[in-house]
């Protein structure tokens, strides 16, 4: 069985990538209603951070098996 950390990596990288790509899209086509601190583009860097951490988890657990 794959360890839980592998699945944590999968879901973080999947969601992080979607949020990151949406953030990039919002950079070029900004939303009509701007949120507070929207100039910081939290979706871009937070999504990227999630995706990277998720990929690290996948990489370190890709060949591991527990019982």
């Amino acid at each position: 069985m794959k360890p839980i950390w592998y699945f944590v990596g999968l879901i973080l990288s999947l969601m992080g990538t979607i949020i990151f790509l949406t953030g990039l899209y919002n950079l070029y086509y900004p939303e009509s209603t701007q949120k507070v601190l929207s100039g910081m583009h939290p979706d871009v860097w937070w999504g990227a951070l999630m995706a990277i951490i998720g990929l690290v988890y996948i990489f370190y657990n890709r060949n591991k098996k527990i019982f």
């Binding site: 969601m15 949020i19 939290p42 979706d43």
Partner: peptide
């Protein structure tokens, strides 16, 4: 609702 743009709203609700 104050800070999160679309995408992040989905993450917060999830």
């Amino acid at each position: 609702a104050r800070y999160y743009p679309k995408g992040l709203i989905g993450l917060g609700v999830t």
